[in-house]
Design a protein around this nucleic acid. Structure first.
Lengths: 233, 233
DNA sequence: TAGATTGTTAATCGATTAACAATC
DNA sequence: TAGATTGTTAATCGATTAACAATC
């Protein structure tokens, strides 16, 4: 039951998927470009060529030009890219000025750390409330954000037009709360729980699997250990 | 000046890089297998075929067999995979029983959250100390772990044979401390700082870029927004 | 204009999927 | 043995890199 398109053939597929959208690989590199451009700005560099940027970032100039051209003609032949302009444009793509409204669900260790960090402001997201079931937490203000009763989550999200939610809950609670958020019109979830969320929901999910990261690091260490042993005998 | 090998041709490259090691793509899927196997165990399922697991995980059976065969012959024709055995084997690859020793550097919001979380124990890593420059923190015990003076980091890591470090520091401090860790024989770093660490160091680095994750989620939301607008007009 | 550098097309490389012979 | 399912080889697909014509 594929819909409409599937025009096949005709159009070129440079870093694009079948519907002509930039590939996930390209998209996931955007924050890194954004970071490097911020660094350039802070060094007072106002203009850069794909090859100079490539050298800094340890990637190919080809990749940079391919990636950026997915989103617009940001450069100029014979000149390169205007750092300020490019930084601004990529920032827009990454929602910097979209004014998204967020809630944080689960005010445990990680939840409190995120509330106190300045991540949301820094990224142009407004965290309008936090939620927890623990009566000892409800009513407290953590990093400017008031903790509300978990039972009021759905109504709040609908009425306050919340765009996204940060899930800092145990795995089972996260799976339970995801459908509630979707039902309340929340569009996306930043998931810190050590589980995946149900697929059928109309939610964009970005996972932050801290446990996975630690395990991957251990893999890398132990595989270098193994190599060393092989070499030494 | 390519070294030695480059044997070219001869050997098959199923999910392997030039030196015959499993590809990064395959490696980065290991924690997810581990998680699904844990779920199977908790459901009392002791045996599973690649196709049944594939259905659960929403991947192809081919990919599962390719991935797993990189690390050994874990399955059995006509039977499938023994869940308990496979879980154990992947756990070993991910360092579950290697007894690695860690330090956490930077006892701010995120650092404290990680110390209080049970992540390290859960993953078989022993966090032996934390470090900070703030005198108000030095001497405190947070989640079983004592905070020591930042100045003693290098000597401590060398003497206590520390394997890995968790960096929960501001970006500039993280870049400064990385060479110190490398010099002290630390092998790997779990980097939470919003920067990349210097490349030339003999350190395995696993990045957890929380800011990036939030921005990527915003990208996804805003791109679905844009699509919706296009459709509606 | 001449030189530089982009955006884009074409070639290469690597990762995923399909097919199947080996084998429990 | 017959049926099931693996490990592996071959085919496909997608992403990266190289090359170059367009153009500032």
């Amino acid at each position: 039951m594929k819909s409409i398109d599937k025009v096949e053939g005709t159009f070129d597929s440079r870093n694009r998927d079948k519907r002509g959208r930039p590939s996930q690989a390209t998209i996931r590199r955007l924050p890194r470009y954004h970071r490097y451009l911020a660094n350039l700005l802070s060094e007072g560099i106002l203009r850069i060529s794909s090859s100079a940027l490539a050298e800094r970032m340890h990637v190919t100039a080809s990749q940079i030009r391919q990636d950026l051209s997915c989103f617009g003609d940001f450069g100029q032949q014979g000149y390169g890219y205007n750092v300020k302009y490019l930084y601004h444009k990529i920032g827009l793509l990454l929602g910097a000025e979209a004014g998204y409204r967020a809630v944080l669900v689960g005010v445990g260790n990680m939840g409190q750390a995120l509330l106190r960090s300045r991540m949301f402001e820094r990224r142009g997201v407004r965290c309008v409330a936090a939620f927890d079931r623990d009566p000892a937490l409800v009513g407290r203000i953590i990093g400017d954000v008031t903790v509300l009763d978990g039972d009021t989550l759905e109504v709040f999200c609908r009425e306050e037009r919340v765009d996204l939610a940060i899930l800092t809950l145990p795995a089972d609670a996260a799976r339970e709360v995801a459908p509630v958020l979707a039902a309340a019109g929340v569009q996306g979830v930043l998931n810190f729980a050590n589980t995946e969320l149900p697929r059928e929901l109309p939610l964009r999910v970005e996972n932050v699997h801290l446990d996975d990261a630690l395990m991957l690091l251990c893999y890398e260490i132990s595989s270098t250990d193994r190599q060393r042993e092989e070499q030494n005998g």
